[in-house]
Write a protein that binds this DNA or RNA. Structure first.
Length: 256
DNA sequence: ATGGTAGAAACTCTA
């Protein structure tokens, strides 16, 4: 199974890139974030024509997450159960014996802001829920935009970013508590190039200057981590005209 | 020096 995650920053705008990318990489499952559309305007027919089923948890203008799959998925939930959230940030589904979760963690805006508090509370709810999910589903994959760079090597300039949003210690601790539920960061299961990032600001030519962060992650349960054969960041779509500010991350799983 | 760009939507917010 090839499973991927991509923050597309508007599915409507990025649909041509997504369709080209699906044809080029042929993933079996794709977690999307920031679809920025309501369910009524989700391009299900275009994706179906490309060979993909889709489940969407949409929202007007902001957020929105989806799971695309070649096999028919069975929806598990939209949102974190028992966590009231007006924002569409989680969808989970069962696909070919794997429970797949697409997550869009709150950005947090700036350290100490109201949105930062919401981000930390959101992470806490995610960790509590995933503990119960992992207990019930040995094949569990949680992919998405976590809006936290786990370590300094995931940051182009750790000194410049020190203490800032995406990097602050409370955010990293919150992410560690999610990982400590029992996941592996799939990217770090393998030797990787230095300065591997998944997001670059649109401004100041950040992508060209390799000024990025690795904030899009694939967290795998022990069973799936043992089956993981590769995890790579695909820079090609970020080089196109009018790209998403995020690159897709792709994992290959050897499932029996 | 607090800039710059992009998306959605509606003259501003979010990232």
């Amino acid at each position: 199974m090839k499973i991927a995650t991509w923050n597309v920053n508007s599915l409507r705008v990025r649909l041509p890139h997504l369709l080209d990318w699906l044809a080029a990489r042929a993933p079996d499952v794709v977690c999307l974030q920031e679809t920025k559309c309501e369910d009524a305007t989700f391009p299900a027919a275009e994706l179906r024509s490309a060979g993909y089923c889709a489940l969407h948890h949409g929202q007007r203008s902001y957020n929105g997450v989806a799971i695309l799959s070649r096999s028919e998925p069975r929806v598990a939930c939209r949102g974190i159960p028992a966590f009231a959230d007006e924002q569409s940030r989680v969808i989970a589904a069962d696909v070919d014996g794997v429970r797949v979760v697409s997550v869009y963690v709150p950005n947090g805006q700036s350290v100490g802001s109201d949105k930062y508090g919401y981000k930390l509370r959101w992470f806490e709810a995610l960790a509590a829920w995933l503990a119960t999910e992992l207990a019930a589903h040995p094949n569990l994959a949680v992919l998405g935009d976590f809006n936290v760079a786990p370590e300094d090597r995931d940051v182009h300039d750790p000194l410049a970013w020190e203490g800032k949003i995406h990097v602050s210690e409370p955010e990293r601790e919150a992410l560690r508590r999610v990982v400590a539920v029992g996941f592996a960061d799939a990217f770090r299961l393998f030797e990787q190039p230095e300065k591997s990032f998944t997001w670059w600001d649109y401004r100041m030519g950040a992508f060209r200057r390799k000024m990025g962060l690795r904030i899009d992650l694939a967290l795998l349960s022990p069973a799936l981590a043992g089956a993981c054969r590769s995890c790579t960041i695909d820079l090609a779509p970020r080089k196109l005209e009018r790209p998403s500010d995020h690159a897709p991350v792709l994992c290959e799983l050897a499932l029996g």
